[in-house]
Amino acid sequence: MINEPIELEVIEKRISIVTGHFGSGKTEFAVNYALDLTKHMNKEIENSRYKKVALVDLDIANPYFRSREKQALLESKGIAVLSNTFGYDINLDLPAISARINGPLQDQSCRVIMDVGGDQSGARVLTQFKNQFINEEYDLFCLINANRNETASIEGATYHISAIENEVGLKITGLINNAHLLKETKIEDIIKGVKLCHELSLKFSIPVKYHCCIEKFEIPLKRYLSQNKNVNFLEKVFVMDIIMRSSWLDK
C-alpha cells in the first residue's frame, strides 16, 4: 500500500513505465504497483479519473519470470494484461508485441503500467511508442537495486540510467529504490539503496519516487527516512508482497 493515496492522484502520471537493469525486480514492482492502484481505484471509482488499470508486459528480452505469468491473478483483480500477439502462455523470446497495447495507451480513462525488459536492450522496444508518450503525461521510472553487483555503485547505476535514456531517447523522470537481497535482506541493505538513490537523485536531478520493501521493513524504513533530512517529502515507502518468486526457490 502507498502511504497517502489521495496525494497519489495528484502526482502520479497516467502512464508509468518501469525500466532498469535486469534482475532488479522490475516485474515484482510492476505487478505490485498494478495491484495497489486497483485497490485505490476500487475505493474511489466515482471520483477517479481512471476507470481501469492495464499492465503492459513489454519484456521481450528475458524469457523467464515475466508479469504475464501472473495474468490470471491480475485479471481476477480487474487488471488488463497485454503482452505478445499469442497470449500470455507462449514462452518464446519472440519480439512480437500485440497491437492491442495501443488501446490502453490511448484510452484516457486507463491507468497504464508498462513493465519493460531489462537493460537498454530490453528498453529498446519503447522507442516505437515514443510519439505516444511525448503528447502524454508519463513517468519513466528507473528501478535500482543497490545490491545488484552492476548497480551497487554510483558509476554502475549511472551507466545503466544513461544507457537506458540513450537507447529510448527519453529522460528518466523518477528513481525507485528496490534494494534487497531476497530472503537475506536486512534493513541496512535497504538503507544502502536509499543512500545510493539520493546520490543519483542529486547527480541527475531526478526525484526518488519510492523506496520499496516488504512489510516487515516498513516501520524501520519509515523511521529511517523520517530521521533523514535529505529525504524529499514526496518520497514514499512502497510495501510489496513477493508475488513473482516461487517459495521453493528459497528452500
Binding site: F22, G23, N145, N147, N149, H180, L181, L182, E184
Partner: peptide
C-alpha cells in the same frame, strides 16, 4: 560482500 546475481551472469563472473 553478498551481491544479488542472476545465475548466468554469476557463472560468467565466476
Amino acid at each position: 560482500e553478498k551481491v544479488l546475481m542472476k545465475g548466468n551472469e554469476a557463472f560468467a563472473e565466476a
